[in-house]
Each structure stands twice: as C-alpha cells, then as structure tokens.
Nucleic acid binder design. Structure first.
Lengths: 347, 347
DNA sequence: GTGAAAGCGCTAACAT
DNA sequence: ATGTTAGCGCTTTCAC
C-alpha cells in the first residue's frame, strides 16, 4: 500500500517483507507442508501486503506445465472464406454445450481453455505450434470434418489430445462418443410406435462417422420393424440444409408420414418445410430429431429428439485429457455414452 | 529425424546444429535484421531439422507478454447453479458472434483468447488472478449484468480491458457499443409505417443500460409519431422470458397490433405466443426484433429486426485491446456503431 | 554482423 | 523446518 510499484511484486519481494527465503514463500504458495504455521501466517500476510500473484510464465518454465489446454474446433473452411467457418461453428448451439461441459470440469481445477479454430492448413499449423511451444498442455478436438488431418498430426507430435467422436480412420487417440446406432434405433422405434409406415430420413454429411452410424442404425432398426427401404436425403447439419433435404424428400415421396433428422437443426428446417407444405406435425408427419439442443425446445411443436449428453461427454473429454497430461504414457481410451429419447410433441 | 528426443529442442540445440550462437538464432526467429542472409538460411535449415518451436513461457518471462488475452463472459450466476449461467451464455447465439469477431481479428496476429466465465465472486477472483499473473495481456469483457464489479476491479488493477457495451456507471475504461436508441427508433418507424397504432414492447432487463436505451429510444420515437403511451413487459433476453412477457401483454392489451422485442430471442418467444393465440404475423400483429441473430432467420415468418454488427464490434473491441496492451498509457476510448434495419417478413 | 553473458521469476534438489 | 543454489529457455544489452 506504499507507492504504486511500476513492476509487479515477485516472490523475492514477498520473501523480503516476510523476512524468509524465496523457497519458503514458494512452499506456502504451493501448499507444501513442512512449513511452520507461524511462518505460514507471516508469509500470507506478506503476500496480502504486497498483492503478490505468482508469475505463470516463470512457473511454467520450470514445471513444464502451462495450466491451459486448447479447445479446438476443427473443420474445412472454404478457402477465402475462413471466417465463415468460425462463425458457423461458434454459432452452433452444439459448441456452447461443449464449451459449457469443458468449463464445468476445468474451472474447479484452475485450468483454462484457449479457443482455437482449425479450418485451414495455416490454422492447423498454428494449433500445432501453439501446443508444441508448450502454451497449452493438450488439446480437446471437436472435428466436423471427416478427413481432418489434425488428429493424426497430434498423435505424431505426441501431444496429449482427446477427440469428441471417433476419428474417421482408427488411430491411437482417446475419444468420447455416443452410441449413435442406439440413438437412431430409439428414433426408429418411436416412429414405428407412432404408426408411421412411410418413413424417410434426413441424414448428416455421409463422410462423418456419426452420420453414417445414425443412418446405419436407423436403417437396421427400420428393417427389423419390417421396412426394408428408407428414402434418404443428405444434409449438412444446418437448418437450411435440412429445409433443402426435406423439400427433396417431399418431392419424391409425397406420402411420407415419418421423418428422422440426424440433428435438431436439420429437423427444425424440415419442420418448416413440412408446415409450409400444409403437413401437420405430428398428425400427418411425425418428426424425430437428434441432439436435444436448444432449437428442439423453440420449435412448435417441440421436437421429440434423441438426447446426446453433450455436457457430460465434454466433461469426460476434459477428464481424459487431464489424465493424459498428468500421465504421458497413458494408453488411449474411449468412452461411449448412451443416448436417451426425449419425447415431446413432434412424434 | 534421429531417435525421438525425450525433450523438445531448444534454441541451444538449433544454435549447435547451425554452428552459431543462441543470440543469432533468436534474431532470425524473431525476424530481426542485421543477420547475414547465408547464416539466416543456415539457421532456418537447423530449425527445420530439429523441429524447433520457441518456448512461450521462456519468451513471456523476458518479454512480459503472454500473447493471449482473456475473453470473459460475465454475469450473475445463481449461487449453487454456477454451471447454468455458463451454459446459458455460451448457448446464446450472441456469444458465438462475439467469439467469431474476436477470433477474426486476433488470429492473424497470433494472439489467442482464453475463454473465461465470471459468474461468482470466486470466478471473478480467478479472472483477476489470471490476468495479474500475466497469463493474459488483457481482457475482453462481455457483461450481462448491470452491477458487475469486474470492470471497476480491472481498472483498479490497471489491467488493459475493453467492454462490450457501456458500463452501468461511468468508469475510465474503453468500450464499444451500439447506438441502441437509434436502433429502437428504426423499429418504431417501421411499425408505424406498417400502420400499427396499438404498439407494445417486450423490453430487456431494465438494469442493463442497453435495455434502457432501447426502451427509451423506442418510447421517444413512438411519442414523436403521436403515440404517447407504450405498454411494456420486461423480459430476460431469453426465448422463454419473451413468451411470458408476450402472454402478459396480450392479456392486458388484446388489441395490440405491433410489438417491438428488445432482442431476437424474446421476439422468437413472442412470435410463438402470438401464433398460439391465433394472431397472424405480420397481418394481425407486426413484430420487430433486435440483434439479427440466427433465430431471426429460422422463425417463420422470418423476423424483421434491427441489426447489430456484433462481429465488427467484437473485432473493434479486440483492436482496442491490443492498442491498450501495446501502449499502456493510452486513454480510454469508446466506439459507437450504427444499427441498420433488416426488413423481412414479420413487419 | 555476431557472440558472451546477464537475468526474467520461479521450483526443486540439496544442504543445513 | 528452512535456506542456498542451480537452472528452466529465452531476449537483450554490450562488447567485439
């Protein structure tokens, strides 16, 4: 509380004020025992007096721990339109849920996520450089792109990393995922129970494993119910692509009475188109979505949808990553979550 | 490419391989001139060969620059329900736009944002500690809470910071904002032009300056059009609160023929309620939103709304922050953006 | 134009 | 239980 110092207080300053050595101050700051209680108090008083805060760079330099991790949203940005990808992915309600789950786990542990977008080769290099520089201890990767080269590069560089969703090609890396097939089965069962007999599906991008699994699971389940053929239209996981896909479906199969959309955003688009064409939902056409994200609740009718416990999955992802950071030799591990059906009004 | 080194290459290693001193390597890494071109090539080759990446912690320690900034979403979390605030704010499309704008500016400059939520006293302390530790060079603060103590604390601690939106009480800090009154005026004009004579408004939380400004601006503009009284219902900037507010408005003023909602999420909720009560939009009731966020495009009819150039504002925020970081003495500055009306189908 | 050397603030042996 | 000391990897005077 004397004259405002031009430079922040260091361990040295605290030590001087408390009349002890730097090592002792370091010990109490880091909660090591073997420090006399009276001295601890002395030191703490000195810390308060000086307004000391440990310098992270200095600490990282010796501990080789950054205390931050990278939260990477990866995908294929159209060349020249880099920012568009960032805008799209960040605006997706899915991202918010992932970030929320990650933060929930990391926050109590004093670890902070650095937000990164990897949509170009340049951006991927940045991410890799950032991690290799030791600016972050590891990476949480949400990839929306099947041929994403980042996972492999991460493994090659021996950087601790955990993926959201299984990689397109098997590589030795940890990930969390959902049992997509089981989820699709839930949707199929619901549609059939509701009496639908002319069922179609709006699939996600078919190069993404999750989309494939949802499609396969859905087809298998329908087949088991005695429906060998399911018309499909591929979308891109956006509301607009859902609209377009639904238009195509309706044009070719006007007698559709049930639709499974591979995510809620596309379901939302499909709903709009259905209503535009005078189809009542769920009376004329039943509709089931996937994710249970916020759009599902804003629609009217509200969407019956397959819930993906994204927050829990993201938290588990963070947990796995911290384990890998703490124990570098750890074998890759996968954790698969079970979906549940949220029955609302659309089916 | 020899045996995998257990420890990453350092400047020292590169220097040895290139047969020069550390200082020289440092110079070429940092693009200083006064290095012989032939030696530059030599060094670069050595860098490639070793796979060297500069250690950020070491660099920060001497340069006193972290190369990262904090992107802080601040607000009042309900005690015991900390994660709920995080989930809500991150899921808001507004957040995605801010993050996108910030990233667009920061990325080319090699600066990375650390995502932080400040919803409790504990979390605020974390943010402050993080910044004081030098883990980040400054803060970008988006506050959803009028009595947020963070801005003042930031100023007190002399931490470079820029706010999104003017603080509730004047303090010496830079910020970007929108001319909310002008935006509200745009909405009022549109409603009146559309022939509305019984106009009401769903306001935002009235302790937030932006909400107040939108309300004031709207009332003033309506008064100027000859309508001295505008019924209002207060919401909380969420879709659900918009529904509730609209229900109240309709109950007390069944003859409403025009509504201005202070953001799109609430407009979306209002639209749902209007339609539930059999009001056709825009024929029976015209509706104008605020923000021009993604929900505005997903609604049917699509929302006529006041566009807030959030991405540009966020980028400007980042620009201001970097200026403050580079020149610590810089005087606080405010930049006010102009809204525009996006005319679509709802009014 | 290049190298030698000091030191950023901290932790972790190692002494005591 | 506490202090001393040696770096962590980098930038940056200051000599040459």
């Amino acid at each position: 509380m004397s004259r405002p110092p031009t430079t922040p207080p260091t361990l040295e300053d605290v030590a001087r004020v408390a009349g002890v050595s730097r090592a002792t101050v370091s010990r109490v700051v880091n909660g090591t025992r073997n420090v006399d209680v009276k001295i601890q108090e002395l030191v703490r008083a000195a810390i308060d007096e000086t307004g000391y805060a440990p310098n992270r760079a200095a600490r990282s330099l010796v501990t080789k721990r950054a205390g931050t991790i990278a939260l990477v949203m990866s995908g294929a940005g159209d060349p020249g339109e880099e920012d568009a990808f960032a805008a799209r992915v960040l605006a997706d309600p899915f991202f918010g849920r992932v970030a929320g789950g990650v933060l929930g786990f990391l926050r109590p542990r004093g670890v902070h996520p650095v937000l990164m977008i990897a949509d170009t080769e340049r951006a991927r290099e940045d991410v890799l450089a950032f991690l290799r520089q030791g600016s972050a201890d590891g990476a949480l990767l949400v990839s929306t792109h099947a041929e994403d080269p980042l996972p492999v590069r991460l493994v090659e560089s021996k950087i601790p990393a955990v993926l959201f969703a299984r990689p397109a090609r098997p590589i030795p890396i940890s990930y969390v995922d959902l049992d997509h097939q089981a989820g699709a089965r839930l949707a199929a069962d619901r549609l059939v129970e509701s009496g639908c007999t002319q069922v179609a599906t709006v699939a996600g991008p078919l190069d993404v494993p999750a989309s494939q699994d949802r499609l396969t699971g859905f087809r298998d389940a329908m087949a088991r119910h005695g429906f060998p053929y399911v018309p499909i239209a591929e979308g891109g996981f956006t509301s607009a692509s859902g609209e377009a896909a639904m238009e195509r479906l309706l044009a070719e199969h006007p007698d559709i009475d049930g639709v499974f959309a591979a995510n809620d955003l596309m379901a939302q688009g499909a709903l709009l188109v259905l209503q535009k064409h005078g189809r009542r939902v769920p009376d004329d056409v039943a509709l089931v979505g996937f994710d249970d994200s916020s759009p599902a609740l804003v629609c009217r009718p509200r969407l019956t949808t397959v819930r993906q416990p994204v927050e829990d999955m993201a938290a588990e992802m963070a947990r796995l990553l911290m384990a890998h950071v703490e124990e570098p030799g750890l074998r890759p591990k996968s954790v698969i979550f079970e979906p549940t059906l949220m029955v609302r009004e659309s089916a």
